[in-house]
Design a protein around this nucleic acid. Structure first.
Lengths: 116, 116
DNA sequence: GTAACGTGCAACCACATGGTTGTAGATGAA
DNA sequence: TTCATCTACAACCATGTGGTTGCACGTTAC
């Protein structure tokens, strides 16, 4: 039984969020050390607002969470969501492996025909 | 030593390709059973050209390969590329785990100060 | 040879995306 | 209080994306 089913739209959001080098780097950073939005903004060669948007995309995908610390908003990477994405890829790979077991069935000696 | 380094742009392409439900389904199908572009096109409620574009995006990301069979172009899912994407996610998760080992260091008894 | 099929590509369109600047509200520091 | 900082959000713009239709070309079937 799968506890946490992800709707297709959720999966879309996760992979889309990961399809940008800046966003992947933000995830990387905040998985190691949580940081404020402005700390992140200082790390990249773009405006504060641009970084803020990237964080919002990541948050929408569940890849990071935010919580207040004083006037700052701390960003923290969410490893669990990454694990879900990884599980989806593993499922795909399993489909590929299943291909060979089906091939084995074909190559194996066919079962005797049913008695009439 | 890592043999196959993926450039950021490659990673962008892989995750972007996976960020669409139709494309993920095409990968799913062709990992199990290779199919022609027109077979795929019949499976979805959109034009042939649209499906063809999706296949092109997947091919550009290395997630599927194509080869000719008569007048058809057979599409086959590429599990190796999916494995690379999965490895990237695993690396991210490992960063998260490393966070705790660093925390352990802090919490552990500090080493004795160096002799003067 | 002719017709039908499978594919690729170009042009087009509506809309999303990734960036910018500017404004405004909270919060902390002096 | 006053000022600087951190954040959020809106408006705007160039470009990319996902879909369409139409056409050209190679291959198979009749």
């Amino acid at each position: 039984m799968v506890v946490d089913e992800l709707a297709q739209a959720d999966v879309d959001r996760i992979f889309h969020a990961l399809a940008d080098a800046t966003r992947r780097d933000i995830v990387r950073r905040t998985l190691s050390v949580e940081s404020s939005v402005s700390e992140l903004a200082r790390a990249y060669d773009m405006s504060f607002a641009a970084v803020q948007k990237h964080v919002a995309v990541l948050e929408g995908a569940g890849l990071v969470t935010k919580h207040s610390r004083g006037r700052e908003r701390m960003v923290r990477g969410n490893a669990a969501q990454i694990a879900r994405a990884r599980a989806l890829l593993t499922q795909l790979e399993d489909l590929w492996r299943a291909r060979f077991s089906r091939l084995d069935e074909v190559l194996a000696d066919p079962p005797p025909p049913p008695r009439p």
